[in-house]
Amino acid sequence: MAVLTATTSSVWGLIRRLTLILLAVSTLGATAPQEYQVKAVFLFNFTHFVDWPADSFESADSPFVIGVLGQDPFGSALDDVVRGERVNGRPLVVQRYETLADLKPCHILFIDRSVRGDVTRTLDTLASRHTLTVTDFEPGGARNSIIRFLNEDKKIRLRINVDSAREAGLTISSKLLRPSQVVGNRGAG
């Protein structure tokens, strides 16, 4: 397995890619929630790569809150993911908000495309409130969510707006930045 020729490598790459495609098709073919199960895991994983300032928590033992705004696409998946998990010793809590009005302070907020119309407002509201905003669509306004899920080649990719993150007072691990598309002025901040 020392050195593979380019040809061999590309052949193997093709096979691998086909395999992945088949896998993805099968996943898609099952249910949409499959996609959201992945996204639920991602949401949970964000807790590991982002640093929240201490004052974003009311107390030392205040829970880490993941909020879902709008119609919940995850079903029970998100709950399943966070169950029993702790972040920096804090328990994880999932909160669902129907509307903007229901919105409460949270550390991660997934904004469903069902509240697409309010998204600019929401983002503005949360701009400096230490909340990692996540969307799976393009908000289209002046202000973007910090992380956006992209469907790329049947895989879920991340686009991170470092300006928004800086604005929200969050530190995103460079590790997270590696596999993601980064927008905004990364160097400033």
């Binding site: 991602f42 790569f49 895989k155 991340l158 997270l176 590696r178 596999p179």
Partner: peptide, 19 residues
């Protein structure tokens, strides 16, 4: 391994391979 955490965490095999 340290650099591979995000790729694994976010299921990014390409990135993993890059790493």
């Amino acid at each position: 391994a340290a650099n591979s955490t995000a790729a694994l965490a976010f299921d990014n095999a390409d990135d993993a391979e890059t790493v």
